[in-house]
Nucleic acid binder design. Structure first.
Lengths: 273, 273
DNA sequence: CGCGTGTTTGAGCTGAGTCAATCCGCGTGG
DNA sequence: CCACGCGGATTGACTCAGCTCAAACACGCG
């Protein structure tokens, strides 16, 4: 997977050393040149029309690995479209308990959950050196009045996020550790495909701990599940390098399909603190 | 799935014992007279202006207990504001596994998750005889262009739904059965309060099974948790009648606060099929 | 080379699941 | 009025997937 991403990373490395001229042009974010514009906010917009969204989007921002794009409770001023790199968002309860809410890849738009209260609810942390296009929310709102398609696009993004969470809940309530991992990998694979990368090979950007948190498991359990999938020759997974060897099996697993032994009715797992 | 709503409902009536949801008189829905308009779509709108939202909303519909307001895969034509009564929505996976996604009370707006695909994702079932105000989604969209407040209101509803789900995930990943139940009861209590009802006494509209599904537990576990809270004299709960006897204790429990014994670090529970 | 961070693997422990029996409230028919 | 049946709620006994604790291991870095 990392073909392109590696390039990205190299660029960043260079940039940070102030050497590489590639980014000398003003980093205006031209959606029409963006490889992921089809997944992003401008879906359905007249991309050639620069007067539209392009005028709104501020200069690209670079976020270093481990740095926060925003934190919970920050006032909402911008939505952020990931241009390259990746992020995690996590929600932390008062008592310090937290969960990873989602992982974000190029084309994804972060910050929609802040619209309700005009304050961010999550922390957003870059999983690698990344770039985002900041979109001033209030001005976006205004613009959307004149471009119904844009409003529609925004509505769809939000609605899709709701649906995604529904599916997550389904996963948390009904799947075993192994199935969750399978589901996670299949999901990632699909997302890579829709971004033009390989379905079968990619690099995880997050730690086992983050995966565990996202899947509602402990990191040891994730490790063990990985080991089992490896033993079944369904995936080759060492460290953060993923190679899906048997996609059909993985997808079967994902959906309650438990082979190995034959149980008619796979049990639904649930978490316990 | 079934083309038109009424047809759908009739179908259901025929099929299930429960319901004949036909409404007799056309009850125009006047938001300004509605007790929950403050929680609903018209938040912030000029309620006296009947030309606005009121003109849009179709005649109220009655849904009998057990009947479906809509089903997964139905095309999205309306959003539905609950006027009175209550609903559950549930998401069912291909293999028959399902979860209750949410419970809906007066003032809540159902159907937002359908905007992404223009098809409903969940089944919505009335938990008691109920009434909803149908809002034609596309016309709402048009109207919202002229009334930014309305658009804002819609955006906020969606965003709030995202946040709610975040919190649900946090619950599923970090809380024990008992804590989940506490959290559920506190949540319900708050919702009743914001609708002008008592915080300490109310009636559950859903079965133990539905509660269990919502909480990511088995119904037996819910029963046992109820029994424990009862034994601790924190709630009086028999059948579907709830009386919260010690709200502070309940809220403490909700947030990892585990008394009983003294563990420094309460464990995070997770589900397992 | 030593150290720290992140990943694996092993060895028990346990909260919640499963299976199963009982109870309770309620509507129905005799 | 009561026996009967049925769906939902409870309770008990046992099992197990995933958690916890703990010890290695791998890799990168100064």
């Amino acid at each position: 997977m990392s073909g392109q991403l590696k390039v990205t990373l190299l660029d960043h490395a260079d940039i940070s050393h102030a050497a590489n001229p590639i980014h000398l042009r003003p980093l205006a974010s031209m959606c029409k040149e963006c490889r992921v514009s089809g997944l992003c906010l401008p879906t359905g917009l007249p991309l050639h029309d620069n007067s539209c969204l392009g005028a709104l989007i501020g200069p690209r921002m670079r976020i270093r690995k481990g740095a926060a794009l925003f934190n919970a409770n920050d006032p909402l001023t911008m939505l952020y479209a990931v241009r390259c790199g990746s992020f995690k968002t996590s929600l932390n309860s008062v008592e310090g308990q937290g969960v990873v809410i989602n992982f974000w890849m190029p084309g994804d738009v972060l910050g929609l959950d802040a619209i309700a209260t005009e304050r961010h609810v999550c922390d957003a942390i870059a999983l690698e050196d990344s770039e985002v296009c900041p979109v001033p929310y209030h001005r976006l709102q205004t613009l959307a009045r004149d471009f119904p398609v844009l409003q529609q696009s925004l509505n769809r993004l939000m609605s899709r996020e709701i649906v995604r969470e529904h599916e997550r809940v389904l996963m948390l309530c009904n799947l075993t550790a192994e199935q969750r991992l399978a589901s996670f990998l299949v999901g990632l694979s699909k997302r890579f495909v829709s971004r033009g990368y390989s379905a079968h090979g990619f690099v995880l950007r997050m730690s086992r701990e983050d995966m565990a948190s996202y899947l509602g498991l402990r990191l040891e359990t994730v490790c063990r599940s990985v080991a089992r999938l490896r033993a079944l020759r369904i995936v080759g997974l060492q460290g953060r390098l993923v190679e899906i060897l048997d996609m059909p099996a993985l997808m079967a697993l994902e959906q309650g399909g438990d082979e190995g032994v034959h149980k008619d009715n796979p049990k639904a797992p649930c978490s316990t603190p």
